[in-house]
Design a protein around this nucleic acid. Structure first.
Length: 388
DNA sequence: TGCAATT
């Protein structure tokens, strides 16, 4: 009964939350339609980890691999199984590998997905490139064949004029070779350039030539010379840095935008009112309160929090669930329930999220969301065993 | 108003 109260309270909050949820989803769609990824670590992230903005291996558009994809800018805590689950929603996967640090086992934030069918690889690029997952916008592109000549071709550039754009940076470096990716880091709060950027060339020799030609040189119109050197390779971090990274609790959540934090507190208060406990978003805090023994915790399945999504269209697929819920936090599984014979969606599906607070925000934000011509109903999964 | 399980 208390569960129902929570549900109702959250539903009432929905009017307030809706505009924000629309922003989230629209943002997801926009990034999907536009260019590549952005460096989107939040300012709260540990600085050692925020370095991996520049670290992922990039890929070119060479057409020699039609099935093998490289996926960059994955959330730090995403596992290989989650990667496989996400990309498996497109088609049959031949192999899937999340690249991890050899010593610490920490994800390096990128991986490879090899499909059986080239058509699925193409579809994955079209539907998953630019997908927002937590604080990241993933990049999906064809993987270049692995070879020594494309390794260590990433340059770190500092001392750039604050007014220099990414396009101008590329213009400056393009005379030395084919640029795979470029980026200028910006202040997380003001959006102003930090005067630091990265250029990844197709081949190492091109990067070497760029260093010779541009290090300690003044770009046209600049008053100060720039520094151009090879970027740090994440797998070559000192053991000290690796250890300190391990001590930053690996499962730490990175708080999202301010709006999201505001929602967290609001929801936390709702939970306090309903349960009479201070949860601090922790499922354990709820489970651990003996006075609440016997109360069903909605949606809690041990491995995460199961969310029921109702009123999906017959042609709904897993990718839409990833797109909708991914921006709210760690999603470990999505499932569209289909009729065995027709293979059409039966109108509902499930999403499993690791953390209670993120699941609660996702529910509060997406319940009542209009998808196409349908209004979704989103809640924690209950234990219903038969139709009413 | 609808809560899976050919994993």
């Amino acid at each position: 009964m208390i569960c129902v109260e929570v549900k109702n309270i959250i539903s009432r909050q929905n009017n307030i939350l809706l505009s924000w949820s629309l922003q989230q989803v629209i943002a997801a769609m926009e990034t999907q339609l536009s260019n590549g990824p952005t460096c989107n670590n939040t300012s709260n992230g540990p600085s050692t980890i925020s370095n991996n903005c520049s670290s992922p291996v990039e890929s070119g558009s060479i057409e020699d691999s039609k099935t093998n994809l490289i996926v960059n800018y994955l959330p730090q805590n995403m596992t290989q199984e989650e990667l496989k689950s996400l990309f498996g929603s497109i088609g049959e996967i031949e192999s899937c590998k999340l690249v991890r640090d050899k010593i610490t086992g920490q994800s390096l934030g990128y991986g490879f997905v090899n499909y059986v069918d080239p058509k699925d690889a193409e579809k994955a690029i079209n539907t998953l490139n630019g997908l927002r997952l937590q604080t990241k916008t993933i990049k999906v592109s064809y993987a270049r064949p692995s070879s020594a000549s494309i390794r260590d071709a990433n340059l770190y550039v500092s001392g750039l004029p604050k007014t220099m754009t990414q396009k101008e940076l590329e213009q400056l470096f393009s005379q030395y070779g084919r640029i795979i990716t470029s980026r200028i880091l910006v202040d997380q709060v003001t959006g102003v350039s930090r005067g630091v950027g990265f250029i990844r060339f197709d081949r190492r020799v091109e990067a070497e030539e760029a260093i010779k030609g541009l290090n300690c040189q003044k770009p046209p119109g600049a008053t100060e010379p720039i520094t151009v050197k090879f970027a740090n390779n994440p797998s070559q971090k000192t053991s000290q840095a690796l250890l300190s990274q391990l001590y930053q609790s690996p499962n730490r959540r990175y708080p999202g935008p301010l709006a999201q934090q505001a929602q967290r507190f609001r929801l936390d208060n709702l939970l306090n009112m309903a349960y009479g406990v201070k949860s601090r978003f922790s499922p354990m805090a709820i489970d651990g309160v003996t006075s609440l023994a016997g109360i069903n915790i909605p949606g809690h399945a041990g491995t995460g929090w199961c969310i029921f999504v109702y009123n999906l269209a017959p042609d709904a697929d897993e990718s839409i669930l990833w797109q909708m819920f991914g921006p709210f936090g760690a999603v470990t599984n999505v499932k569209v329930i289909r009729d065995f014979n027709t293979n059409k969606c039966k109108g509902f599906g499930f999403v499993t999220m690791t953390n209670y607070d993120e699941a609660a925000v996702a529910i509060a934000s997406l319940n009542g969301y209009r998808l196409g011509d349908r209004v979704l109903q989103v809640s924690f999964k209950t234990n219903k065993t038969h139709k009413a």
